[in-house]
């Protein structure tokens, strides 16, 4: 079971969190004309990386904040965690 550092609450067990997918996906702006391809890329197409992956988790049974977690999908190493609005260097 992973041990995730919530930027608000500290180290917590994975079972307090729920996974939210790729954090690099950006929702297209409302009312903006976009192609089918752009929309499909937003809704469906994901890279399924092996290695470093920036992803969303929600601290569901905790502070309920959505956070960003930089995790290696192969080794499960967690390099860093960020608040939703934090700049990622």
């Amino acid at each position: 079971m992973l041990h995730i550092k919530c930027p608000y609450c500290g180290m917590r067990s994975q079972n307090e969190f729920s996974y939210g997918g790729d954090a690099s996906v950006k929702r297209p702006e409302l009312n903006k004309e976009i192609s089918d391809e752009e929309w499909d890329n937003f809704v469906y197409n994901r890279k399924s990386l092996r290695g470093k992956h920036l992803e969303l988790w929600q601290h569901l049974s905790g502070c309920r904040q959505w956070i960003k977690v930089e995790r290696d999908t192969a080794t499960h190493e967690i390099f860093n965690t960020y608040k939703a609005d934090e700049e990622i260097s």
Binding site: R27, Q58, R64, Q65, D85
Partner: peptide, 13 residues
Amino acid sequence: LSHLEYYLQLVWP
């Protein structure tokens, strides 16, 4: 609830 929190915290803060 999670759905609303997702949009409020991440998409339309």
